[in-house]
């Protein structure tokens, strides 16, 4: 059981900024998606609209054929963890928060919750106000994973967690996903850490869709062309250039787009080196520019 998402012409205007700008995006169910974007790119707003945290005012958000806002059939199947705060009331205990989720999430798995509590060393009786930031994040992750919601979204849900805990989260996520396939969206800054978990990657910038690709395909789309400046300039003419660097007579240009076999042969003949670009770098190139 997993939910697909269909977004059309979605726009969200805040008084001072357009957070989502005519976004159209279709995500098939049952995959792990990486949602990448810089701070303020609209990731949280987008996820909040999908999860019915916010009302759609311009455009459409359709999940499994229906609009999620005030739709109980859907909201009980959609789980968004924005850090941990939303599922937490100060003064609640860890156990009480899990109890609430168990009662309200039809797909809740108690054993999974128990395992995750142990994994993250969260004491059931501890009050949430006494948890560290990382522990609160871990609690959010516990609720998010054990809810087994057919559409599960984590919005930077690892804040304050150290590297071992984050890797434990990724492992738990992957394992749980394989046992219970569902649609999962992870928004993150730490791209290199999790890129291999993503089947597809969605990059947004200033509320607009920049890329939506199969992860492998996206990675292969970027290339750094290195060689004598003149040859590099000739070779990359007409290509989408994301960035360039120069060191003496040698130039390195990062391009975005498919480079066919023929072009690769030409590059070799001209003495140019084509090297791939890490997803993180590609992301930086694709989303740089003025963020006033």
């Amino acid at each position: 059981m997993s939910l697909g998402i269909d977004i059309q012409g979605l726009t969200v205007r805040y008084p001072d900024v357009t957070a989502i700008d005519d976004l159209t995006l279709r995500l098939a169910g049952g995959k792990i998606y990486g949602l990448l974007g810089r701070n303020g790119s609209g990731k949280t707003t987008l996820l909040s609209l999908i999860a019915a945290y916010r009302r759609v005012r311009e455009g459409r958000v359709i999940v499994d054929g229906q609009e999620p806002f005030e739709n109980e059939r859907l909201t009980q199947q959609i789980c968004l963890i924005r850090e941990a705060g939303d599922v937490v009331i100060d003064g609640d205990s860890v156990g009480n928060i899990l109890r609430r989720a168990r009662l309200l999430r039809p797909t809740w798995d108690d054993d999974a919750a128990e395992r995750l509590l142990e994994l993250f060393e969260l004491p059931r009786r501890r009050g949430v106000s006494k948890l560290s930031r990382g522990q609160r994040s871990a609690l959010g992750i516990t609720v998010g994973l054990a809810s087994r919601a057919p559409l599960t979204m984590f919005d930077e849900s690892y804040l304050g967690m150290d590297a071992p805990s984050r890797y434990a989260f990724y492992d738990a996520l992957l394992e749980d996903y394989m046992e219970h396939p569902r649609t999962i969206i992870l928004s993150t800054h730490l791209i290199e850490e999790v890129a291999r978990l993503f089947e597809e990657v969605v990059i947004i910038d200033r509320g607009r869709l920049v890329a939506h690709e199969d992860t492998d395909t996206l990675r292969m789309r970027g290339a750094a062309v290195v060689g004598p400046a003149v040859a590099v300039d000739d070779f990359t003419a007409g290509m989408t250039v994301l960035g360039e660097q120069r060191l003496g007579g040698t130039k390195s240009v990062t391009v975005y787009g498919d480079i066919g076999e023929d072009a690769r042969r030409v590059a070799t003949d001209w003495g140019l080196e084509l090297s791939p670009v890490a997803l993180q770098d590609l992301f930086v190139h694709l989303t740089k520019g003025d963020h006033a």
């Binding site: 009980q76 959609i78 599922v87 609430r100």
Partner: peptide, 16 residues
């Protein structure tokens, strides 16, 4: 202020 965010985050509708 206290309960609406938790309710919505737990999959309740505002109506409920």
């Amino acid at each position: 202020a206290v309960y609406l965010p938790v309710a919505v985050a737990s999959g309740l509708t505002r109506r409920t």
